[in-house]
């Protein structure tokens, strides 16, 4: 009996001491955090993707509170995952307002599928685009195209990007994509662009990243942009297209979705995404090959021998 009593007392005393220690430790080392940070954090998606440019959602919440106190506005801060609704909630908590931002989406600017861009050699090494980039050009003759090893897939927190086993290209699931930009950062060739989603998700994109001269680009890929500049002429009215380093680029802000460039492109490198299919009797005057103009990135127009314009 006595020993039980002793044990109970001893343990009790130890417990008491430990409790006291914990109490004082929690007082002494307490971190006073602005309670708004917690509130803001609570409405954030908690994906900790880093798409906002801060280390995780807590970091972003801290930055929002700091910006409110110091600048008095939330300008330049955006949670790409939550988008407008979340930013409005954040602004509500902090007593701020946010301006509307246009939603964006990741776009893989390469259409060099196995069919379009024949594999010349076989890569046999670690499954990583960054590693393959050290071997040279990769499996194909294109020094700018998609490796298909999925560095972007591994960086995506939302399961919104995958490698299509048939085309061996990265494909974005627009529903899931939050435009956080992790994939764009992971891509060693800068193929992925975070682009405006466009009205009704409709947009015109040059699905190519090849900056080689036309002859080389054309030789190794059927779907490459050769920098011929026909699209630039087709877009004279809106001046949305520019060719730099043998590669055409469509400025989404200026693009009016007229689809003239799509017809003008001799290689079918310009794609109209999420657009309704064209009527069969397309009355486009300068488009003799418009019958099988692609409407989605994965259907391929017949290759056309381009005239080099360099």
């Amino acid at each position: 009996m006595n020993s039980i009593l002793m044990a109970v007392i001893a343990l009790g005393v130890i417990g008491l001491l430990a409790a006291l220690l914990l109490y004082f430790a929690s007082r002494k080392f307490a971190v006073h955090e602005d309670e708004r940070i917690g509130q803001v954090s609570a409405v954030l998606p908690q994906a900790n993707c880093g798409g906002c440019g801060f280390p995780g959602c807590a970091g972003f919440a801290g930055a929002c509170v700091k910006a409110t106190d110091e600048k008095g506005s939330l300008e330049g801060l955006l949670c790409p995952v939550g988008g407008q609704p979340v930013m409005e909630q954040v602004a509500g908590i902090l007593g701020m307002t946010v301006e509307a931002t246009a939603p964006k989406v990741a776009v893989v600017r390469c259409n060099g599928s196995c069919e379009n861009r024949p594999r010349l050699v076989e890569y046999d090494g670690a499954t990583s685009c960054k590693v393959q980039a050290m071997v040279g050009m990769g499996e194909t003759g294109c020094s700018y195209g998609c490796f298909g090893c999925g560095d972007c897939v591994r960086q995506c927190q939302f399961g919104a990007i995958r490698i299509n086993p048939e085309t061996k290209l990265a494909e974005v699931d627009e529903e899931k994509c939050t435009a956080c930009g992790a994939c764009a950062k992971a891509c060693p060739r800068g193929i992925i662009e975070i682009r405006l989603k466009g009205p009704k998700n409709r947009r015109m994109v040059v699905l190519c990243n090849n900056k080689d001269k036309g002859a080389i680009a054309n030789k190794w890929c059927k779907a490459s942009c050769i920098g011929c500049g026909k699209c630039v002429k087709a877009c004279e009215k809106f001046e949305a297209i520019t060719v730099t380093k043998n590669l055409a680029y469509i400025d989404a802000e200026k693009c009016k979705l007229c689809r003239k460039c799509e017809e003008a492109c001799p290689k079918g490198a310009i794609h109209a995404i999420n657009m309704p299919p064209r009527k069969p009797k397309a009355d486009a005057p300068a488009a003799p090959k418009a019958e099988n103009t692609p409407t989605t990135p994965n259907t391929q127009s017949s290759p056309i021998t381009p005239k080099e314009q360099q």
């Binding site: 594999r119 010349l120 050699v121 076989e122 890569y123 046999d124 090494g125 071997v135 499996e139």
Partner: peptide, 8 residues
């Protein structure tokens, strides 16, 4: 016959 490439 495709050649294989890899790092050393």
């Amino acid at each position: 016959n495709k050649l294989i490439v890899s790092l050393s």
